[in-house]
Amino acid sequence: MKFVTFKTDAGRTSPGVLTDSLDGVVDLGDRFRDMLSLIDGGAPALAQAEALRRSPGRVHPLSQVTLLAPLPNPRRLRDCSVFEEHMQGGVNFVRKMGIDPNAKIPDVWYQKPIYYKGNHLSVAGPEAEIVRPCYGEKLDYELEIACITGKRGTTIPREQAHEHIFGYTIFNDVSVRNTAAGELQGGWA
């Protein structure tokens, strides 16, 4: 299923799921307050969403709604650095900016997941205007894939990790590079 959050012309925001033809949105708002309540509902909620998708009661044409971020209000936002090539790009950036000419990928990166905490209150949807802050000289973006966790847990064994994944989406990480360069002087954050 391809989940979305959308806004109607009347201004109502609702979770939904795309129709098989991808030209409509099945409104899940009668059963779920928002995407987080659907995620929190686990397998029974997914079964309800699937049943609604298969026998759509209220379908909005995609052309008549505004798509928002699929998960517009995540509880947390962690941006993980899991590709060595991406990390090397960051090291090269630090060197180029003159922050640390001897920068290298830290040994700890090879030992455990490294991430920075993103602002979960600044999520924007498709076609949304990204406003450059007054202190920002250069906006930069990176195409990323987001992994949305559903089932909670701690100290999860690697072989059970997939049980905790709700789904995936495309995520564009937008940052102000001149601010990031200054923050990097304090270390990998």
Rank of each mutant, 00 (worst) to 15 (best):
Y110I: 05
V4H: 07
I148F: 11
I114A: 13
Y115K: 00
P15T: 08
H120M: 01
Y135I: 00
E85I: 03
F166C: 04
T154H: 04
Q64A: 14
H120D: 11
D30T: 09
D100F: 02
D40A: 11
R158S: 13
D34V: 03
R53L: 13
G182W: 05
Q185W: 00
P133K: 05
L38W: 02
R54E: 15
M97Y: 02
V17A: 13
T13C: 12
N73D: 12
R12A: 13
C147H: 01
D23S: 11
D20W: 04
G98E: 08
Y168I: 11
S37E: 15
A189N: 14
R132W: 08
V26A: 03
E159D: 15
P101V: 03
A146I: 06
I105G: 01
F83T: 08
K112G: 00
T5A: 00
Q160E: 15
Q64P: 05
L71W: 06
G186C: 02
V26R: 01
I114E: 12
D40N: 10
R158N: 11
D27F: 02
A103K: 02
R78N: 05
V4G: 03
I145A: 13
F166D: 09
F166E: 09
F166V: 05
G29F: 06
D27G: 01
A47L: 11
V176G: 00
P70G: 03
K117M: 13
K117C: 10
P133I: 06
N73W: 01
A146P: 04
G167M: 10
V82H: 13
F6A: 12
R152G: 14
L18P: 09
L22R: 14
I148T: 14
P70C: 04
D34Y: 02
E183Y: 05
F93W: 11
H120P: 05
H120W: 06
D40T: 01
E137D: 13
C80F: 15
D79R: 00
H120Y: 10
N102R: 08
D20I: 00
N92T: 11
A189S: 11
S175T: 15
A124R: 11
